[in-house]
Design a protein around this nucleic acid. Sequence first.
DNA 1: TTACAAATAGTCAATTTGACCATAAATTAT
DNA 2: ATAATTTATGGTCAAATTGACTATTTGTAA
Lengths: 231, 231
Amino acid sequence: MPARRFSKDIIETVSIDCLIFGFRNSELDILLIKHGEGISKGRWALPGGWIRFNESIDDAATRLLTSLTGVSNVFLEQLRAFAEVDRYPGKRVITIAYFALINADNYSLSAGFTASDARWFKLHEIPRLPYDHNKILKTGFQYLQHKVRHEPIGFNLLPKKFTLHQILKLYEAILETELDKPNFRRKLLKMNLLVPCDEKQRDVSHRAANFYRFDKKIYKQLKESGFTFQL
Amino acid sequence: MPARRFSKDIIETVSIDCLIFGFRNSELDILLIKHGEGISKGRWALPGGWIRFNESIDDAATRLLTSLTGVSNVFLEQLRAFAEVDRYPGKRVITIAYFALINADNYSLSAGFTASDARWFKLHEIPRLPYDHNKILKTGFQYLQHKVRHEPIGFNLLPKKFTLHQILKLYEAILETELDKPNFRRKLLKMNLLVPCDEKQRDVSHRAANFYRFDKKIYKQLKESGFTFQL
DNA sequence: TTACAAATAGTCAATTTGACCATAAATTAT
DNA sequence: ATAATTTATGGTCAAATTGACTATTTGTAA
């Protein structure tokens, strides 16, 4: 009989759940995994797990994200705790939700991983999820909508080099509105956060767009001198 | 021998800590309480406590805030969880920090309560606090600085009726800058969030300022029609 | 070589901002 | 009473930004 390790290693009252956003084909995606065991076996849900005694919650979130999806080095920050009394069946479990943005370069998470157990879902095609995961998702999406307007975090959803068209489509998808192309360009470029790359689009059947990259250092400098990102 | 109720009623791995902001005399205050028992006896710290099995964390925060300070019906929302492995001596405790804004009408919290054990501290005169409370404080203050610019929550720190001068001073205290009075007035009034009261200042040795109040309903309407608060 | 598609550039009136100056209304000092 | 003082409130004006457009460029595809 195997030793019952769990109750020694982990904090059984607190879990982590990751809300992982991706962006492809001008649509926002959410990564879900199929539960292999436990109460909600066979159902799609947010990737998550337990916190170990010897790791912080940030470390736990990073570890879980990597072990469940294969990606690392992505934008990851805490959303908040969810703790309705009856959110988890049978026992009292508080979960701390994390918020991750995955860029297109990291999109092929299934490579090497159990592809059938982790899948991107379009934001508006998310099924009914167990526990309070739909609530977490809703909260996280509203947070994204707000945050993307006040901080330059949207770039985390794009490849390192991207076109202005891609950002426009990203913002349209997140904010669920149409935006004026020339005006959006002008405003974004005037911030001087984007550095033009010496490279253009290829294999497109029209004028090739220039690539840009977001420069963290420049943003840090601007912020220190009083600049606030605003779209 | 009294029954050892605690370990049955509460979740011993998760606590609540409240970061309570107040505003008086043009200065930001933080409410601290003196610990009466436990590891950090006699030291000033953020008000907090344990979560009961049969209450949500929002309920726990509300209960603790009221029982420790006597105030109720104040702006209270979750900040986030803090969970460094060694933040609490001896055992692993995750805390969920809450963020409260108390208006001047509720300032006399000591009335009826143990005045010597709860006290307002000026933000820049906070002593060294136990656990990671200074870190929570720093995070919460940065959050306030950000949030107050993008959402009309500052009014929660003022009395129901206030003058434009009071808001100006409030913003100057939070953002730690000087602001141009006429321009600030103009911008704020143009939003149409403030309703002039039919009442003026009294007993001031200069021209009396008009009182205004913040109207939640108007804000809700404006927000639904696309308006975003921005200062 | 022309049609097209999307990128990029430019226009212009209306609005908003930032830096001010001016006046109004209250009290206190003379 | 009148003047001085203090803060509230009202205005001005050039500069910058926005929103709604039109125009031009640059690349494939017919």
